[in-house]
Write a protein that binds this DNA or RNA. Structure first.
Lengths: 122, 122
DNA sequence: CTAAAACCTGACGCTGGCGTCAGGTGCAAG
DNA sequence: CTTGCACCTGACGCCAGCGTCAGGTTTTAG
């Protein structure tokens, strides 16, 4: 596949794919004319990269983590790093949940104003 | 309280507090000499701001949301906005959970290599 | 009264994940 | 052969939430 098709299927921009290559996250064969050529599996890989980015991993970490996800296992030296990232993700989740609860309270209160909240100006 | 104390208690930098003021997220009284003076409640407010930032809200949204959280209720016009933000947060949470699961798989596989993964070079 | 903290206002820098030109090439169709 | 779209390589732009330096003022400890 060529870059445009991968971009479409993975739902990212062409620019993003070039950027991933620049960051050593995604390699491509080159045609004699210099055009990038990807295997089908690239689409899944890009989706994975996006997922890790969405989790807040910087590209450097993604670079480390990718081969592990590919192989399903990790070099022991990376284990600490993986667990650290995992912990950070969990922390973010609880933070997000807390923030969401805040919003929920406000939303609920707005829907039906609670009795205790009745300090309206008479 | 002065700005340094608020910063310490809330666990943020002095610069951040000035930035919040610039963004209309946090007001302060000024002494005759021009120094900022905060009520005790500022600490909690800063923590809240941090929480909302951590949830990915941009300062513009935080500015809208803050009075709602203060009053415990919202102007009806903001309700849609609140729910949109809430939805985004929920989405992020599921995304994060998915990414975490990925890492968990890798971590688990590394800890005790699974039988199905035994294509070691003989 | 003085020295040292703590504070003040600009204003520029940084980081990351791309968006977006500009100016030139590859490749399949007719 | 040429048209035209997809592709190529730089290279600069952007945005947000501060970090950080510069150069000056206020407050407080002694």
């Amino acid at each position: 596949m060529r870059i445009g098709e991968v971009a479409r299927q993975a739902g990212v921009s062409v620019r993003a794919l070039r950027y991933y290559e620049e960051q050593d996250l995604l390699q491509a064969q080159r045609s004699t004319g210099g055009q990038r050529h990807y295997p089908e599996s690239a689409v899944a890989r890009v989706r994975l990269i996006q997922q890790l980015f969405a989790a807040g991993l910087p590209s450097r970490s993604v670079r480390l983590v990718l081969p592990c996800v590919d192989s399903g296992t990790a070099a022991p030296g990376l284990l600490d790093h993986l667990e650290a990232e995992r912990a950070r993700i969990s922390e973010r989740i609880t933070d997000l949940a807390a923030a969401r609860d805040r919003l929920d309270t406000v939303i609920a209160n707005t829907r039906n104003p609670p009795p205790e909240c009745t300090h309206d100006p008479k």
